[in-house]
Simulated assay, not measured.
Amino acid sequence: MKKLSFVVPMKASTSEPPSPADCRWLYEMKFDGYRGIAIKNGKQVELLSRNRNSLDVRFPEVVTAIAKLPVDRCVIDGEICALDPKGRTSFQLIQNAEEGTVPIVYYAFDLLFEGSNDLRTLPLVERKERLDALLVDAHDPVRPSVYFDRDVAKTLTRMRKIGAEGAIAKVRDSAYVAGSRSADWVKIRFSLQQEFVIGGYSEPKGSRSGFGALLLGYYDKDRRLIYASKVGTGFNDKTLASTFRLLQVRVRKKSPFAPFELKRTRWTRGPLSKVHWVKPDLVAQISFTEWTDDGSIRHPVFLGLRDDKPSMQVVREPVARAK
Rank of each mutant, 00 (worst) to 15 (best):
Q95S: 07
M29Q: 14
S90K: 00
L240W: 00
E98G: 08
P318W: 01
A67H: 04
T157S: 10
S90I: 05
A82H: 11
F31T: 00
I39Q: 03
I226R: 14
R73Y: 03
R130M: 09
S202I: 01
A183C: 00
D222N: 15
I297A: 03
L26C: 10
P204W: 01
S180G: 03
L55E: 04
C74L: 11
V57T: 14
F113G: 01
A67R: 14
F190Y: 13
E98S: 13
F257R: 08
Q313I: 07
Y147M: 04
A67W: 00
L135P: 14
E99H: 12
F31G: 01
Q193T: 14
V249Y: 03
Y227S: 04
F257I: 05
R52K: 15
M159N: 10
F260N: 08
S15H: 10
K263Y: 08
T14C: 07
N51D: 08
H139W: 14
Y27A: 01
L55Q: 14
P60M: 10
G199D: 02
R143Q: 07
E46D: 09
Q248L: 08
E16C: 07
R264M: 08
W277A: 04
R321I: 14
V57F: 13
N96V: 02
K230I: 05
L215S: 05
P20Q: 03
K323W: 02
G33F: 08
V152K: 11
S145F: 10
F244D: 09
R321A: 03
R264C: 02
A228H: 02
V57H: 12
E114R: 03
K43C: 06
G163A: 06
K154W: 11
K254D: 15
K309T: 13
R158D: 13
L122S: 02
L247Q: 07
R269W: 08
A38S: 10
F91W: 10
A97E: 09
I198N: 06
L282M: 15
K86T: 15
R266F: 06
A284F: 07
V197H: 03
A82Y: 11
V275T: 09
P141S: 13
G42R: 00
L55H: 15
F190A: 00
P256Q: 10
G166F: 07
K2Y: 09
N41K: 05
P103R: 10
L305Q: 07
Y218F: 13
F257G: 09
L135Y: 05
S273Q: 13
S255Q: 04
P60W: 13
L156Y: 06
L214Y: 06
A258K: 15
S242E: 15
V136H: 14
P310V: 11
P204C: 00
E203H: 12
F244L: 01
K187L: 00
A167E: 02
